[in-house]
Design a protein around this nucleic acid. Structure first.
Length: 592
RNA sequence: GGGGUGGUAGUUAAGUUGGUUAUAACGUCGGCCUGUCACGCCGAAGGCCGCGGGUUCGAGUCCCGUCCACCCCGCCA
C-alpha cells in the first residue's frame, strides 16, 4: 500500500480516460463501484470524482498474490490500480463516457475496506431522505449530489470574479452580533464573559453592509451564512447562504444592472444558457394584478382576470357580495380544462382553501355555452366578461375565486395558476423565467395587531415622491425596493436604503417605534447616518435557491453539503443536542 | 401552532375481512463461472412490523397516544 500514494501517484481521474490514452500506463485511485467476478476474469468499475472506468483484473496480468487482493475487492472499498489503457476487448459500453476503453491492471492495492453500505451508491436512488441524511457522507458520493456541489462551487467563483471585476471589495462581517427584535426569530449565543447576555447570529449582514458604505468602501460584497430560527420548507433552511452586496451613489437601475450581469455570466458559464438582459421589470402592483403573487412565474401565460365590476349585479351572492363589498372576483382560464372531472375540480378547490379561499367557482365552455353549477348565474355581463376579458374558448374551464379580502382571492388564484401549470406540464424543465419586481409597498398591516410593519425592512427608502405620504397615508407609500424572481421563486431582493436620519426617524415613527426604542435597537445605525452617510443600496441573492434552480433540484437541501431536517436538526451529528450541566453553569444558564 | 403523506429484513416495497412459519427484489455472506458492464447460476443468513398503551382467544392489520422524515398553511422585516 505504501508503494501506492507515496511512490505511485494517482495519474488520472477514472472518468477522464479516452481512446486517446490508449497504450498509456495510468495509476487510478478511487472506490469500487461494482464488481463483476466471472471467475477467471474479474471486472470492476472504479469510481472517483471524475467518473467511472472499467478495470480488468485477471491472472494473465496479475501474480497470484495480486490476484488474491483483487478477489477481496467489494463495493465501496478504496483501491489503487496501476495498469495500461487499452481499447475494449469486448464491446464498448455506450453508457459510460469511458466506454471505449478499459484499464488492464498490472498492480493493485487495497487502500481501505468498507462495511456493507446502508444504501447503494447509485445516481438514481430510491432510499428515503431520512437514511440518506444520517449517512450524508455516503449520499454525497452519488454523482447528482457531487454535480450539484461542483456547480455551487463554480457559481460562487463566477460571482467572485464578477464582483471583483466590477470593483467590489469582499469584506467579512460579524457572526456574533446583536439581536434585533424585528424580523425573523434569532439564533442566540450566550456570552460566558457577560453572563445573562446573548449574541445573535445574523439574519443577514444588513446593517453592517450599510455601515461599510458609511465607511466609504462604495462597493461591498460577501458570500455569507445567514441564520433564521423559523419553520422550514423545501426552500428554507435555518442556515443559508447569501451573495450579499451593497453600493454607494446608485439607483435601483444600477444595482439591477450589476445583478443582471452576474446572472448572465453564471448561466452562460455553468449551463451555457443565454439570459436576455436587461431582465424584464414589473412593478409589485402589476405582479399582483397579473399573477396574484409578488413572485410570479413568468414562464407561462394564464394570467389572472378581474371581473369584479362585471359581477356587481350578479344574482350569485358569492360573486356580488365581494364585488360590492370592496372585495375581488378574479380567476384564471385553463385552456383545454373542460376535460377536468368533478374530482379534479374538488382537488383544486381543496388547494385554494389552503390559502384561505372559501371555495372555487367554475364554468366549462363547450359548443358556445357555459356549463357547471354556476352556469345558471351567468348573466349578460358575466358572459361578456368571461369571453372578452378572460378569453375563455370552447374546451376551456374558468376557475373563479371571490373574496371580501382582495389579497385572499388574489393569492388563491395566483397559487392556483402555478399549481395548474405544474400539473399540466406547461413549463419545460430547462426553461428559465426571470423577472424583477419593483416598487414594493413600504408597509403592510399586521393581521393580528393591526399595526404597521415594514414589508421589506425599516431601512428601505421610500420613493422620493412618496416621502410626504409617510405621515398622511403610509400604506400608499411605495419604495425603491426590488426582488429578483426566477421560475416563481424569489432568489434575491434589495433596496435603496434611507441615508437621511430625518426620513429614518419618520419611518420609525410610522412603525410605532419611539425615539428611545430606536436609539436602543439601532442607535449605531442612526449615529452612522448622521456622519455623512452616502446614498446607498444593495441586494442579497439566496445562493442556495439559485443553485437549486440551476441544477434542476426541488429542494435546497440537495445543494447544501450538510443540511438540516424540517425540525431544524442534523440527523448525522444529532445536533442540536443537550449539554452538560457544568457547561450551562459556566454560561450562567438554567433550563426551565 | 394547524393540515396532509409515510414509517414492515441493510435498502425499496407487498402483506387480503384481524387467523398457522411475515413475502419479494436489490444488497450481504458462501459456492460455481475467462469478456462482463444492473454479469449469470446455485445456496444461506438476515425482522423491536417506529415506540407506548388499549380492544380481542388472537394485532403488521382495529382504536388512542407519541416520536421521526417529507410536503403545505401560518411564520420567514
Amino acid at each position: 500500500m505504501a508503494r501506492f500514494i507515496e511512490e505511485l501517484k494517482k495519474s488520472h481521474g477514472a472518468g477522464e480516460l479516452r481512446l486517446a490514452h490508449q497504450g498509456e500506463e495510468v495509476v487510478l485511485m478511487g472506490w469500487v463501484d461494482t464488481v463483476r467476478d466471472l471467475g477467471g476474469t474479474q471486472f470492476i468499475d472504479l469510481r472517483d470524482r471524475s467518473g467511472i472506468c472499467q478495470v480488468v483484473l485477471s491472472s494473465e496480468n496479475l501474480s497470484a498474490d495480486q490476484l488474491e487482493i483483487a478477489k477481496s475487492f467489494r463495493q465501496e472499498f478504496v483501491v489503487a490500480v496501476r495498469g495500461e489503457v487499452i481499447a475494449r476487448g469486448g464491446k464498448p459500453n455506450p453508457n459510460l463516457k469511458t466506454g471505449e476503453i478499459e484499464v488492464t491492471a498490472k498492480e493493485v492495492a487495497l487502500l481501505n475496506r468498507s462495511k456493507p453500505m446502508p444504501f447503494q451508491i447509485q445516481d438514481e436512488v430510491d432510499t428515503g431522505e431520512e437514511i440518506r441524511l444520517k449517512y450524508r457522507f455516503l449520499d454525497l458520493r452519488r454523482a447528482p449530489l457531487q454535480r450539484a456541489l461542483l456547480m455551487r462551487s463554480k457559481a460562487a467563483l463566477i460571482a467572485r470574479e464578477h464582483f471583483a471585476a466590477e470593483g467590489f471589495v469582499e469584506i467579512e462581517t460579524p457572526v456574533l452580533t446583536k439581536s434585533t427584535p424585528e424580523g425573523a426569530r434569532d439564533y442566540l449565543v450566550p456570552s460566558r464573559i457577560n453572563k445573562g447576555k446573548f449574541f445573535a447570529l445574523p439574519q443577514s449582514p444588513q446593517l453592517f453592509k450599510q455601515l461599510l458604505q458609511v465607511a466609504g468602501f462604495e462597493r461591498y460584497f460577501q458570500i455569507c451564512k445567514c441564520f433564521r430560527d423559523e419553520d422550514l420548507r423545501a426552500d428554507r433552511q435555518p442556515e443559508f447562504t447569501q451573495i450579499d452586496l451593497e453600493m454607494s451613489f446608485v439607483t435601483p437601475d444600477d444595482i439591477m444592472t450589476i445583478c443582471d450581469g452576474m446572472l448572465k455570466k453564471m448561466f452562460k458559464g455553468i449551463l451555457d444558457v443565454d439570459i436576455q438582459t436587461p431582465i424584464p421589470r414589473i412593478t409589485y402592483d402589476e405582479a399582483l394584478t397579473r399573477y396574484g403573487v409578488d413572485n410570479p412565474d413568468v414562464r407561462f401565460e394564464m394570467e389572472l382576470f378581474d371581473i369584479t365590476a362585471d359581477t356587481m349585479g350578479s344574482a350569485f351572492q358569492v360573486f356580488s357580495g365581494p364585488a360590492n363589498g370592496g372585495g375581488l372576483v378574479t380567476g384564471i382560464v385553463v385552456t383545454g380544462g373542460a376535460k377536468y372531472s368533478r374530482k379534479d375540480v374538488d382537488g383544486l378547490t381543496d388547494f385554494v382553501k389552503t390559502y384561505g379561499a372559501k371555495g372555487l367557482a367554475w364554468l366549462k365552455r363547450d359548443d358556445g355555452s357555459f356549463s357547471g353549477p354556476v352556469s345558471k348565474f351567468v348573466d349578460e355581463a358575466l358572459s361578456a366578461a368571461l369571453l372578452d376579458k378572460a378569453g375563455i374558448k370552447d374546451g376551456d374551464i374558468v376557475l373563479i375565486v371571490a373574496d371580501m379580502d382582495p389579497s385572499v382571492a388574489r393569492t388563491a388564484a395566483g397559487r392556483l395558476r402555478t399549481h395548474i401549470a405544474k400539473k399540466e406540464g406547461l413549463v419545460a424543465p430547462d426553461q428559465f423565467g426571470f423577472t424583477w419586481v419593483t416598487e414594493f409597498p413600504m408597509f403592510e398591516k399586521d393581521a393580528e395587531t393591526g399595526k404597521l410593519a415594514a414589508m421589506h425592512h425599516p431601512f428601505t427608502s421610500p420613493r422620493p415622491e412618496d416621502i410626504a405620504l409617510l405621515g398622511a397615508d403610509p400604506l400608499k407609500v411605495k419604495t425603491r425596493a426590488y426582488d429578483i424572481v426566477l421560475n416563481g421563486q424569489e432568489i434575491g431582493g434589495g433596496s435603496i436604503r434611507i441615508h437621511n436620519q430625518e426620513v429614518q426617524a419618520e419611518v420609525f415613527k410610522a412603525l410605532g417605534i419611539g425615539d428611545e426604542e430606536a436609539r436602543i435597537k439601532f442607535g449605531f445605525l442612526l449615529d452612522a447616518l448622521s456622519f455623512g452617510a452616502p446614498p446607498h443600496g444593495g441586494l442579497a441573492f439566496g445562493f442556495d435557491r439559485l443553485v437549486s434552480i440551476m441544477s434542476g433540484l426541488d429542494s435546497i437541501r440537495d445543494v447544501i453539503a450538510f443540511p438540516k431536517t424540517t425540525r431544524a436538526g442534523c440527523l448525522m451529528t444529532d445536533a442540536p443536542s443537550e449539554v452538560d450541566e457544568p457547561q450551562l453553569k459556566e454560561l450562567g444558564i438554567k433550563l426551565i
